[in-house]
Write a protein that binds this DNA or RNA. Structure first.
Length: 271
DNA sequence: AACCAGGGAAGAT
DNA sequence: ATCTTCCATGGT
């Protein structure tokens, strides 16, 4: 799989400037630090790249206090941040993975979406040598050039609908052709990046904001139409039904600048 | 069986 | 511009 948990260790294969390494990440005892373990001696620049990767993946450079100061005064968020104190927004640093995962998750239940992603990774993702007897080898998320060469019929056996297959392949082709890149999106203002994403077939407001949250780390990205967010509001506000657009707007009125964190914490409250 | 699920495109008005 | 329909599939 893409990553696995082994006791206290999180294991993931990552591509660091062309170096394919298996990282083992675990909390360092009695400190607030993380320990990153390498299988063999890697040069210092790769160790640094690994640290940067982990910092971005888990948003370690973000100061949570301003968000907490806001959330403590918000009756909906207060109990959620209290229950998950210290949690950071777990990102999806790779743009193709973020877009593909968002498209896969459109309009289907989450367990099935995970199954589809797993099939995609195990069918088209490159394996890192060395195998775990139970979970199989660590795999990388499929490279855009591999998916770009497929036709929708190739993905049908994985139970992709024709549309999902078209969307994912189309995004892979944009990336492979260099007409879309995370680097260029990060150079733009958040609103411009959002418009760029919305122009892609298969990417609507929800997907653009999801990618803004999880990949570009735009603090104000807010997938207001998200079904999980609606579920959290239904429960948190005791509505007994899905919230109306006006109720969502009212709930989020005080979240300015922290919409992404608020949404992420509310998703956590559903687990 | 009906409705929902971490929507979006295409067509209709 | 905004509303409606269709897309596909598994879970509850």
């Amino acid at each position: 799989m893409l990553h696995r948990i082994e006791g206290e260790q999180l294991v993931k294969a990552v591509d660091l400037n062309g170096h394919l390494v298996r990282l083992k990440i675990q909390p360092a005892a009695d400190t607030a630090m993380l320990l990153i373990e390498f299988p063999q001696n890697e040069p210092p620049e790769i160790r640094t790249a690994a640290a940067c990767y982990v910092r971005e993946w888990f948003g370690l450079d973000e100061d949570l206090e301003p968000f907490y100061a806001m959330a403590r005064k918000d009756p909906l968020l207060a109990p959620v941040v209290s229950a998950h104190r210290g949690l950071r927004l777990i990102g999806i640093p790779d743009l193709f993975e973020a877009l593909a995962w968002a498209i896969i998750g459109q309009q289907i239940n989450l367990p099935f979406a995970y199954t589809m992603k797993k099939r995609l990774v195990e069918t088209y993702g490159e394996a890192l040598p060395g195998e775990d007897p139970w979970s199989g080898p660590e795999r990388f998320f499929p490279r855009p050039d591999v998916i770009a060469a497929l036709t929708p019929d190739d993905l049908r056996p994985l139970q992709f609908s024709g549309r999902k297959a078209e969307y994912v392949i189309g995004v892979a082709q944009l990336l492979e052709e260099g007409r879309l890149s995370k680097r260029s999106l990060l150079r733009m203002e958040a609103a411009e990046a959002r418009e760029t994403l919305l122009a892609i077939r298969g990417v609507g407001a929800w997907t653009a904001d999801y990618v803004g949250m999880k990949c570009l780390r735009h603090p104000s990205a807010f997938p207001a139409a998200d079904a999980g967010l609606h579920q959290a509001l239904k429960i948190g506000l005791g509505l007994g039904r899905k919230p109306l657009p006006a109720e969502i707007e009212q709930a989020a009125a005080g979240w300015r600048g922290f919409e992404a964190m608020a949404t992420f914490y509310l998703w956590q409250s559903l687990l």
